[in-house]
């Protein structure tokens, strides 16, 4: 799937460059956030956080830019432009981290501060920020599921594919958590592959219901899994009888959250991530020190775990997942 996407998109690497917005007052420090794809719901939401940090902080001008199409080569060009403009700091959400090694090294050589997000394998960065640890996130799904199921009963899990590293990490961590804490929960047919297709998730849920009529809990893997699982449960008339948790986008999943077919979804809020990325960039500009357990002043980012990255930089990790269910759905419009 990704290969298809890459091939299709790189074939059309037409220079749909997004114009960088005008730089504000000359004495302000300039922090520019480069995202994977301009205009995507996720990054539009992130922009809110970027703008908010700029407005709340004196002496800082922030903006967000991104290629018109998710394409690593276009991201490289945008960063090259920023080096030419000599901004003070660049915050990047890389489309394909290894592709940016060269250009980010050039930026740092020029004295530009570099921080990244969702790129813990990147060498040429000073700070990489991760919203949460994947194992902790998986265990969190399992704890929610356990609460909903009354800590007992049959449950199963989905992954987008067995090759999706993070999905497998979540499912494995969830299974390990259940094995340790909830002896009465019985995991059956783990890690069903949905191939990131809601229809496959739907078909497999139907089959699971036949095989395990006493099924009480399902954990989704890819963001479309809860949609397929929710539809299967709605049609089978089992809404509210089976607990469903997984990663998902609030707007995409809203109808199933409202109907109760999906109990809850968890994700990290890109708005908070955008805010924190810029805060970290500012700390780099000011030469502040990063410490284990530091508080960045945003819920979920109050106890940052610090570890060494693959290069000279560090990785800071929060616990910034948010749980969305039908009661708080209205707060998240993305």
């Amino acid at each position: 799937m990704t290969l298809w996407k890459k091939l299709a998109l790189s074939a059309v690497a037409l220079g749909a460059m997004v114009g960088t917005s005008s730089l504000a007052a000359a004495d302000d420090v300039q922090i520019t956030t480069v995202v994977k794809l301009a205009g995507e719901t996720w990054f539009t939401r992130m922009d809110e956080g970027v703008v908010q940090y700029g407005e709340e902080t004196d002496g800082v001008t922030t903006n967000e830019i991104g290629p018109g199409k998710a394409d690593a080569a276009q991201q490289v060009r945008l960063i090259e432009d920023l080096i030419a403009k000599n901004v003070d700091a660049i915050a990047v959400v890389p489309f394909d981290p290894p592709m940016l090694e060269g250009v980010l090294k050039r930026a740092m050589d020029r004295g530009i501060k570099v921080m990244t997000h969702e790129a813990d394998n990147l060498k040429n960065t000073q700070v990489d920020m991760e919203a949460f640890d994947n194992a902790a996130f998986g265990a969190h799904f399992n704890d929610q599921l356990a609460d909903c199921m009354g800590k007992k009963g049959t449950w199963t899990s989905f992954v987008g594919s067995l090759g999706s590293l993070t999905h497998v990490q979540w499912a494995d961590a969830s299974a390990a958590n259940a094995a340790e804490k909830y002896p009465d929960m019985k995991l059956v047919s783990p890690k069903n592959e949905s191939f990131n297709d809601a229809n496959t998730a739907y078909n497999k849920t139907k089959e699971l219901l036949k095989k395990y009529p006493d099924l009480k809990g399902i954990q989704g893997g890819s963001a479309v899994d809860p949609i397929g699982i929710g539809r299967a449960l709605e049609e089978a008339g089992l809404v509210g009888k089976i607990c469903v948790y997984g990663i998902g986008m609030p707007n995409d999943t809203s109808r199933y959250l409202k109907s109760g077919a999906v109990t809850g979804i968890s994700l990290w809020d890109p708005k908070d991530a955008g805010f924190v990325m810029n805060k970290i960039a500012k700390m780099l500009i000011d030469g502040e020190e990063f410490t284990d357990g530091m508080d960045l002043g945003v819920p979920g980012y109050t106890n940052m775990k610090l570890k060494k990255g693959p290069g000279k930089g560090i990785i800071v990790t929060g616990q910034a997942w948010i749980d969305v269910n039908k009661d708080n759905l209205d707060k998240y419009d993305f």
Partner: peptide, 8 residues
Amino acid sequence: NRIANPFD
């Protein structure tokens, strides 16, 4: 499916 996913 009640959703349109261009990657389907």
